[in-house]
Design a protein around this nucleic acid. Structure first.
Lengths: 253, 253
DNA sequence: CAGTGGTCTAGACCACACC
DNA sequence: GTGTGGTCTAGACCACTGT
């Protein structure tokens, strides 16, 4: 049922660009190109036309076309070389991952995560939490403790502190939805997260809770997350059963 | 000894832009701004002039000024809001970190790393290595095993596989210089690294080598690194003594 | 040499925030 | 309203690559 082979020119000319849309033109162009590469319409190794020709073909200016290309380069989908041209490279199954949370990770992996909220209350920040969140001591913060399970086995103990003003949701929302997703829904735009990943052996109590043997290896994670306005949004300390969870991280540049 | 307080305008007008330099103008502008923020000449909370005024003041066009600003935004140094302006935010000591290696990490931390090269030889890729490096089986690869110490105590066992064609250095070079640095010197531009971080307890042999107790927690890291042309450059499996090393990672966006 | 991406310019119009 | 950043255009020159 596959149609006749299409040239790269044909594929690109078929892109539908909507100038009335609030989505920037360069982003629409980039999206179409990413999709065409992912779908195999622009196979690995394809040498694209030069910027000017592509821009004309799509009816946009060269800077707009360039902006779209820069997006693809930073995503590792094409390689550009001066004097040579732009070539499609391996559409590797690199996970795009950047700022995600465990819930997102597990959902994407089809692991059907479930979450038990063990604690959800507003408290006064102690010295440590205040320092991490860049707040005054005794400022109101919400402390959240959750036990995350996958396939009905516990996999992580998670403690999070957030400035009370940011918590526009309730404990029940956390059973179905990840914390990051809830923050995004309230209009927060996350910018960066500084994480420290380490390991240690489990105490008896931790092993019991996570269903691991005593002395089992645990992954530890400490994280401070910042929004695009430079405000600190979250301080988290998590504990993972290392036998059943590992972090996948993609660093770019 | 500090001079009279300078206004943001004064600070910015003092930037020296070199139009003859091969360094792009927008990058020069961004560097000057980053430095001024780091030095406290543009303190946290400063509201900068609008783009057009700044561009005029520095003698560049508005798109060039914008490119510099975008650099600062992605670095988390300023926040921009439409209709409001551009404000300097916390010059937090976020490590810029991106693609670094353990050697760089330790050097930056003043830990005086030393490295013993245990193995450095060209072998035929087995199925696993070939798959990770995207090579044919039995293709020539260089296998490197190193023991990295800090302050004279072993801290990591590192195994790396590289396509033989990329190895333009010798075993001795690795005692003084990190692997990533050597690759960069040979003209390689690294683009992304997919890492998996996990943990497990040490075997007797591993514990002995790393100077840890039997059953101690180890951090494990597996990594595939790619250059800006989409070629796979390195496959690594590392083992860290978790009692003395943890990963610090900055995720952006 | 001709062709490519890399950089820069001088304008324009728009969406949004505050008064 | 006015002022801000966000987007887009049409052109120009340069540096690098391969012939």
């Amino acid at each position: 049922m596959s149609g006749p082979p299409r040239t790269a020119q044909d594929v690109i000319e078929s892109f539908a660009i909507d100038r009335a849309s609030p989505i920037p033109l360069w982003f629409q162009v980039a999206q179409h190109l990413e999709q065409a590469i992912a779908a195999g319409d622009l196979p690995q190794g394809t040498l694209l036309d030069n910027e000017i020709a592509l821009a004309q073909r799509l009816g946009v200016s060269r800077p707009t076309m360039r902006r779209a290309m820069e997006q693809l380069v930073s995503g590792g989908l094409v390689a550009r070389r001066r004097g040579i041209g732009t070539r499609v490279i391996q559409p590797k199954v690199r996970r795009p991952l950047e700022l995600t949370s465990l819930h997102d990770d597990l959902s994407a992996g089809g692991q059907q995560p479930s979450t038990a909220v063990l604690r959800f209350e507003t408290v006064a920040a102690d010295a440590e939490v205040a320092a991490r969140l860049d707040l005054d001591e005794r400022a109101p913060v919400v402390c959240i403790e959750r036990l995350r399970s996958a396939l009905d086995r516990p996999i992580a103990m998670m403690t999070n502190y957030l400035p009370a003003a940011l918590v526009t949701f309730e404990a029940e929302d956390l059973t179905d939805t990840g914390l990051y997703e809830l923050l995004r829904r309230s209009g927060l735009r996350l910018h960066s997260a500084a994480q420290t990943l380490g390991a240690r052996t489990a105490t008896a109590a931790e092993a019991r809770r996570l269903g691991e043997a005593r002395g089992a290896a645990l992954l530890t994670m400490e994280r401070v997350t910042t929004d695009d306005q430079g405000s600190t949004v979250e301080y988290a300390t998590h504990l993972y059963a290392a036998s059943r969870y590992s972090f996948e991280i993609n660093l770019v540049r």
